[in-house]
Computed example of a mutant assay.
Amino acid sequence: MTCTKSTLIEEISNIFDHNPSQSKEVLETLIEIIKSTLASGEDLMISGFGKFQVIEKSPRKGRNPATGEAMILEKRRVVTFKCAGKLKNKINEEI
């Protein structure tokens, strides 16, 4: 089952005994902080969880899948995630 924003809001409400609108505001604020940090090109590290990093990708050759025509894909920035050791251990203790 996928954990959605609604699920997170419900969990925050239950744990901190907030009403759902307060929990939604907290979650939306956190997401905005994460987005603005990454958009500015900064890395975001959350201890015990992992590190989000913005990587610059160079232009490269590609192919249009619909037509098969060769093309150059422009440079772009992507977000990568490296899992922290504590999270890896937590995930693997379920096996």
Rank of each mutant, 00 (worst) to 15 (best):
K57N: 05
F49I: 15
R77N: 04
N89Q: 13
K86G: 02
T67E: 00
K57V: 06
E11P: 03
S58R: 15
S13T: 06
C3K: 11
F81C: 03
K86N: 12
E56I: 13
T7C: 06
K82N: 09
I9K: 04
I33M: 09
E74D: 07
K82G: 07
N89I: 11
F49A: 06
K61N: 07
I15K: 12
D17P: 10
C83V: 07
G41C: 10
E69L: 08
E11K: 11
E56V: 15
S47L: 14
A66W: 00
L27Y: 02
V79A: 07
I15A: 09
H18I: 08
E74C: 09
K51S: 06
Q22K: 13
F52G: 06
I31S: 09
V79Y: 02
G48M: 04
R63H: 04
I31W: 00
D43A: 15
V78N: 07
E11L: 06
L87Y: 02
G50K: 10
V54A: 01
T2S: 11
C3W: 03
G48A: 08
E42W: 07
K35T: 15
E25I: 10
G85A: 12
A84I: 11
E32F: 08
I55S: 10
L73V: 15
D17E: 10
E25C: 08
K82M: 04
P20Y: 01
G62T: 00
G85W: 00
K35W: 04
E94I: 15
G50Q: 09
I34C: 13
C3A: 09
I15T: 14
T2K: 15
P59F: 01
L38I: 05
G50T: 08
M71G: 01
R77K: 11
I12S: 05
